[in-house]
Structures are given as structure tokens and as C-alpha cells.
Design a protein around this nucleic acid. Sequence first.
DNA 1: AAAGGACACAACCGCACGGGG
DNA 2: CCCCCGTGCGGTTGTGTCCTT
Length: 266
Amino acid sequence: MANVSKSENYSKPSEEESELRRGPWTIEEDTLLIHYIAGHGEGQWNILAKQAGLKRTGKSCRLRWLNYLKPDVKRGNLTLQEQLLILELHSKLGNRWSKIAQHLPGRTDNEIKNYWRTRVQKQLRHLKVEANSSRVLDAIHDLSVLEAMDQSSNPSLNFPPSSLHNTTLPNMSETAILPFNDNRGGSPLPPPSSANQWPEISEYPPNSCGEFVEAWSFNMLQKQEPVCALGAWEVADCDAHMAAPDWLLEDAMVGNLWSLEDHHLV
DNA sequence: AAAGGACACAACCGCACGGGG
DNA sequence: CCCCCGTGCGGTTGTGTCCTT
């Protein structure tokens, strides 16, 4: 491997760096990273990692920021339009995830890649369709038409899930740093023990990120009403920037593009 | 209720590329 | 040129959660 030394910039810790952390990010680390970027901007990731006091590689910081912490990262299910766009773009561009992501504002290449690998590829296997063949779009088109018909004739959408019906939420304070609270594996915060119970606010780090977090929280509060309909822990799963019309009109109406696999495809 | 498998996704790894010295 | 460094990309892995038996 001729290029090892380049990749080792990030990956192989020196003796001094042997305490580098790996694995899931903690809220404290997220806070440090956000705070630093709010004050100094992005870029120079290795320097950033050191100066921010993070025991992470620059590469890890960059990835965490771009894929998760950056304010305009959109979370929540992909809409039908987004899914169709991904499929269409993939048929043209192949596995150029970053290029595909450029056409989906707020979506990351990692998210699109994961979506493709975990859902689309599985279905294409079922369909016995080559991922890069022209049949993909045909199959998708048929699927979407079928699904639209199915949905329009079936107004009972079963969404939100019945398990979340009648859940109530406490008011969210302006200082709640909810976007930090995610559904990643190894999250340091436990899920609420009941649908309307949030973790103690004291479990969150101090709101030390200044305007950055305040603006973020404000965005979240603007979306509070529709998001709350999801139920307590689902709010944490949702991104503060998910627009209500998207959620209400798209996700709820069409659900998952691939959710009809068992009915139509298999 | 418990165990095991499947799934989803965050995070890591290896590599390539471009710019600056 | 060559080397180093920072960055970006695509593939892969690790692990928590969900589902099924």
C-alpha cells in the first residue's frame, strides 16, 4: 500500500495521541465541538481537534460535524420525493454518494449511503434487479404509483404509531439542547421511562454554546407543534429543522417507499 | 420473559486528490 | 518534482434497538 503514510495522518495514533477516543461521541464532546466551531469556524480539523480539547482525530471531528452536528443536517425519514430522487440520481451517478447528496439539501452522503445499502439494495435483490440497470427506475416508478394508489384509498395511515397516541409532553425550555440527544447506539442518555418523561434537564450539558445553540433551540421550538405529535422520545429522533409540512404531508402520507415490499414485490 | 437474528445507522478505515512548501 | 498535510469519498464495521420465535 503506497499511500499508508497519508491515511495515517488521521488513523494511527502516535504515542502522545494514544489516548485518542473512539466510538460513539458523548454529549460533552459534541458540545466542545459545536462551541469551538461556533467561535472559530470549520476546517483545519486536526488543529481544531487539539484546540477544542477533543481527544479525537481531526477526521473523526469532521465526520461528526458534517454528518450529525451541523445545523442544516436534516434528520428523520427520507421523504418519498427524496427517495425517488436518490434512486434516480443513483441510476445516473452510481455510488457517488456525495454527488447525490448535493441534490438533497440537508441530507448527508453517509445517510444516503446507509439508506441505499440497508433498504434499496435489499429490495433490488428481492426484485432480482441489478442496482445499476435501467430496470431500477422502472421498478421504482411502478412501486411509487402502486403506493400512491394504496395510500389514497387507505386514509387510515396508522401514523403516528398507536403506541404514541395520547402522549403529552412537557414544555420545552429555550435552553434545552435537544438536538444533542439522539438515537445513536451507545447514547449516554437513557430513553424516557414513559412517553412523557424527559431526562432531567440537568443531564444535559450547560448551555454554553451561545448564539449557536440558542438559534438552534429557537428553530426547534418553531417546529415544536408537529414534532410533538410524534411523542416524547421521537422528538429526540427528529431533527429540529424538519419542516412540519414535510412530516405531515409526506412521511405520514406515503410512509416508507419500501414499506410495501411484502405486498407488491415478494 | 428470554434468546437470537435482523436491521439501522453512527463511526471508522483505507485510499486518493490537491495545494503548499 | 517530491513530500507533507488537510480534506473528501466510498466501503466496511460495530453496536444498540427492534422483532420474531
